[in-house]
Design a protein around this nucleic acid. Structure first.
Lengths: 343, 343
DNA sequence: CTGAAAGCGCTTACAG
DNA sequence: CTGAAAGCGCTTACAG
């Protein structure tokens, strides 16, 4: 009675019904009498039978799979995913599972012909694009995607001419919140650490909000306090060293990522500055370590979970033909000790 | 001439050959004349044709997909993947892509019936299991996997009775390296921070190596210097505070993760200790931040990339019927400033 | 409520 | 080197 790789026909034989009835029963069709359905499902369970997804997919033209395309910044040398996106994977996977979708991940380089294949080959019903920061670079690829009627949603800012839909963090608001908070606490000379070139539109947006907070209060911002640099990991300490070497006076630091902020705190402490006494520090991201460094880091948190769920909800909506809109989600300031305003 | 969703038959009509010849040409079969093949491939490209994976998979009984099952420690509440495994995703995905496999990710709780379905439903040809630390808990699940002839490979220690194959880091060697290094630098009272209960067999193995290094040199280890605790993120500072509160004397710290080590460095500095002058610190993992804290953290690095590639190579070997062996990979000590031995 | 039948789009023996 | 044909395992209109 044990069958090697059972098919619906095997179940049918065992249950004494037609293969069509087995198929209906396993999909919980109301057309099948309950008693029959239960019997069939029991046999299927007994035999460890699972519907062949290839056959079902061939028939229905669906894969019930979402492809997650992560932009590979290393150009193929290394394979490090931008660490910021990693935690999203878990949330995306779970949300997708709740809606009955599997998640296929793929690292894609800019040079790859990454657009159309997943959907055209029926491996995925739609795509989520993570890490495609600079729209201008991808413009043509996105257009090709749209032309091929591929369903996709981008994690990133909403840009007018950009094809498709996107869901992103409102980085301007984030920068605004950080700077407002420091200015509200009486800090007047806030250094800005972060790369705001076109390569990093998110950081540029954070700077925009930072600048706007100064404007709101009619406080000028000294351009000498803005440290731009390429290498993000060491920017914290190098930025501080540079500011000190240049003899800049500052009473606060806003870093575009927590990694930079934490590195900056170290450098400040090493140079004998008290944080937040002498210099307040605010970061961005709320990475796990942020709450555990000393002083605990005040930072701007993007709701990664909410964002992930929204991305999945949108792509599934697109797949199932529902209306979908682009949106920006407001981040939230998490006040801890490093800003000196935690009461 | 533009076809909506072209099939191999459309290509065949356009090329004036049979559908079978198209199929052969697209798979680069040597049976097809080169001129014919080129013509067919050109037309396919022109039409943005891609082989329907469901149809091909149904025919060949293969999916060319590997399922990556990540253990979800949160029991479904949250969806955070253990951060240590995240970087592996990128390497696994790339290695798999190089061998022609897609990667499906899935978060699985202990209670899930996570074993058999992926392969039985022909969604994946084999499984990679990440994060299944405590074999005893999964014993039955792994046996069920093996019984169902599911191909799988586990990232973790090799355990004798454990079904299937595994690839892991030699954590004993790692702990040994760390402790030998500190002892070799003249430290004699090394505190150990980490949870070594059965829930964390990797950490227990690191402790084992740590202990063995003491034995080698005939140096006793004061059990009062071992701080065990549940909450890993704050163990660094809490551990140090506890040691100090208990009046323990120590000249070094070995923490089972870098996060704990970095937190410990902070706590030491806050309490007026110089690192590494008064207390040397060694961590484990070599997380990105490790090189950038002050002092830069000496740590034990697992070669995540090599491990990921080995996992993929093994599962693909299993899928393609080649012989595969379990193995342990030696980690490597990365000497920086925090151990006071960088010269 | 159930069954017989068609067909999804491929791959691959078989025949030439 | 190429074609006609079978068949992978489903889903679903159609008929009853």
């Amino acid at each position: 009675m044990k069958v090697e790789n059972p098919t619906s026909r095997d179940i049918a034989d065992l249950a004494g019904v037609s293969q069509a009835t087995v198929s209906r029963a396993l999909r919980n069709s109301p057309l099948v009498r309950e008693e029959t359905r239960n019997r069939i499902q029991a046999i299927a369970r007994e035999l460890n039978y699972f519907v062949n997804r290839n056959a079902a997919g061939l028939r229905t033209h669906q894969s019930n799979t979402i492809a997650l395309l992560l932009f590979d910044e290393t150009g193929g040398e290394d394979a490090q995913i931008n660490p910021f996106f990693l935690p999203m994977l878990g949330y995306i996977t779970r949300s997708a599972a709740e809606l009955g979708y599997d998640v296929l991940i793929s690292m894609q380089q800019l040079t790859d012909d990454w657009h159309i294949e997943y959907q055209a080959s029926h491996r995925a019903d739609g795509l989520i694009l993570l890490g495609y920061g600079d729209y201008m670079t991808y413009r043509e690829k996105l257009r090709a995607l749209a032309r091929a009627n591929t369903r996709f949603i981008i994690w990133g800012p909403t840009i007018n001419e950009q094809p498709g839909h996107s869901i992103g963090c409102d980085n301007v608001i984030g920068g605004l919140q950080a700077a407002r908070h420091l200015l509200g606490a009486g800090r007047r000379r806030i250094a800005f650490l972060g790369n705001t070139t076109r390569r990093c539109p998110e950081f540029a947006a954070r700077y925009e909000g930072f600048r706007r907070a100064h404007e709101e209060l009619g406080i000028g911002f000294d351009p000498g306090l803005k440290v731009d640099a390429d290498n993000l990991t060491t920017l914290g300490s190098r930025g501080i060293e540079q500011l000190l070497a240049d003899g800049r006076v500052f009473d606060a630091v806003f870093a575009v990522t927590d990694a930079i902020a934490i590195d900056a705190i170290h450098a400040l402490q090493q140079n004998g500055y008290d944080v937040p006494g002498d210099v307040a520090v605010v970061g961005f991201d709320d990475i796990p370590l942020a709450a555990h460094v000393t002083p605990a880091l005040t930072t701007v948190r993007q709701d990664i979970r909410q964002a992930s769920e929204a991305l999945v909800k949108s792509i599934v909506g697109l797949i199932e033909g529902e209306p979908v809109e682009s949106s920006l989600m407001a981040p939230r300031l998490i006040v801890r000790q490093s800003c000196g305003a935690s009461g």
